[in-house]
């Protein structure tokens, strides 16, 4: 059943499907072109929704995309929308319009995505790192950064000596 009360997404999404809330916790899933992000945010805002969460996934390996994930929810009824925005799989290079003009909550979420994934947001008022140090030269949640297998083996002998002293 699309659209839900007061929400008009017609023509904004590339694809919209209903989802089984009992299984995955979403009522609707949408795929949106990156150029439409602000419009769709506006539609959700006018429909009485709030930006519940926003994040990113590094899907360069399987989907060949950096995937932005937005979820929108309501306070008065249970209706959760999941919105995917697929970006080009290049870091740096992936860029999307910022939603901060519609939902101020996006400010910190976008900073976090930039911090962790290196996706840039055009129109963000102050896009800088939020959790990692300002001088970090990496984006920590990218799949090619810091897998445990990559970490050098610690030489236990030396460490014991150091601690025993």
């Amino acid at each position: 059943m699309l659209p839900t009360a007061g929400l008009d997404l017609s023509g904004l999404t590339s694809s919209s499907v209903d989802s089984d809330y009992a299984v995955d916790g979403f009522h609707h899933r949408h795929t949106v072109e990156s150029g439409r992000i602000v419009e769709i945010a506006r539609a959700f805002c006018d429909g009485g929704y709030h930006l519940e969460m926003m994040t990113c996934e590094d899907r360069r390996a399987d989907l060949e995309a950096m995937r932005l994930v937005y979820t929108f929810g309501r306070f008065d009824l249970v209706d959760r929308h999941l919105v995917f925005v697929d970006l080009v799989p290049e870091i740096p290079g992936a860029e999307a319009p910022s939603m901060t003009g519609v939902f101020p909550a996006a400010d910190w979420y976008e900073r976090e995505v930039y911090d962790m994934y290196g996706v840039r947001f055009s129109g963000h008022p102050d896009l800088k790192r939020i959790l990692l140090p300002d001088d970090a030269d990496f984006h920590a949640l990218l799949k090619d950064f810091g897998r445990i297998e990559d970490a050098p083996e610690e030489e236990s002998g030396e460490r014991d000596e150091g601690q025993g002293a």
């Binding site: 995955d24 979403f26 519940e52 969460m53 959760r80």
Partner: peptide, 22 residues
């Protein structure tokens, strides 16, 4: 494989977990 969302009410509010399983 797929995306899952689960929310609870923590002492501070809506705590949600967005889990992507492969």
């Amino acid at each position: 494989a797929g995306e899952y969302y689960f929310a609870v009410e923590s002492a501070r509010g809506h705590f949600g977990m967005y889990i992507v399983s492969d």
